[in-house]
């Protein structure tokens, strides 16, 4: 039963102060719990990210396998594929995050009624998205890469390949790891960006309106 609003001397707003900002650790704690508790829902959200990154990783891997044996035409086709996969990735992630923010409008409204600041709500969703993005990207990278490697191993060395090439061409462990280093930031940052706009919008509408929303 503590006195929560002990007025400061000279305060002119009847003891109303600025709401405290919660530390990042609190938001991280909230986000972690939220992912863990709605694990399967989170995994479906992550599915969109996972598929996008798996596609990206597989395209990048097969480009590395072809390596310097790519002719100019093939190389530009590959680049197009990479761009395309990035687009697929972005659309998939945006859709997942849009959905997952929208279905929690009411929760956002409730939290704001209880005294959450808009920036806390945004922060919470961003961290959650970032976590999901990392997990889904690593999984997507692993699955995309492994699938392509298995496919190449199964189809064997191409007939027109120069002597001495293996089924995996110029792919090395280092290159595989480089793809990981590329995929994870792409996945997690895209996820965070895709979350930012809906979360921002949701956090800024008056709580009354957020509570009215039925999804």
């Amino acid at each position: 039963m503590s006195v929560e609003a002990a007025p400061r001397p000279g305060a002119d707003k009847g003891g109303v102060k600025k709401q405290v900002e919660l530390p990042w650790s609190k938001a991280i704690d909230f986000a972690r719990k939220s992912i863990r508790i709605r694990f399967w829902r989170s995994m479906i959200t992550a599915g969109g990210i996972f598929l996008g990154i798996a596609f990206l990783a597989s395209v990048l891997t097969s480009r590395e396998i072809a390596g310097s044996t790519l002719d100019v035409k093939e190389a530009s086709r590959m680049n197009w594929l990479v761009i395309l996969s990035l687009v697929v990735c972005t659309v998939g992630i945006t859709n997942s995050m849009l959905m997952s923010v929208t279905e929690r409008f009411k929760e956002i409204g409730t939290m704001k009624c209880l005294g959450a600041l808009s920036q806390f709500v945004v922060r919470l969703f961003m961290i959650e998205a970032f976590f999901l993005g990392i997990i889904a990207s690593v999984l997507g990278w692993a699955v995309g890469t492994i699938l392509i490697v298995l496919l190449k191993l199964a189809s064997g060395v191409p007939d027109n390949a120069p002597a001495g090439t293996t089924a995996l061409g110029e792919l090395t462990m280092v290159k595989v790891l480089w793809i990981l280093v590329f995929c994870v930031p792409v996945g997690s940052i895209l996820t965070a960006v895709a979350t930012y706009i809906p979360a921002m919008r949701a956090a800024q509408i008056p709580p009354a309106a957020a509570l009215r929303v039925d999804v």
Binding site: E4, A5, K13, V16, K17, K18, Q19, K112, C113, L114, G115, A116, L117, S118, P207
Partner: peptide
């Protein structure tokens, strides 16, 4: 007269819903 943070404070401390 209250800004967003002061409103949040009010919702948190002064009003229950």
């Amino acid at each position: 007269q209250l800004d967003a943070q002061e409103l949040a404070f009010l919702r948190c401390h002064t009003i229950g819903y």
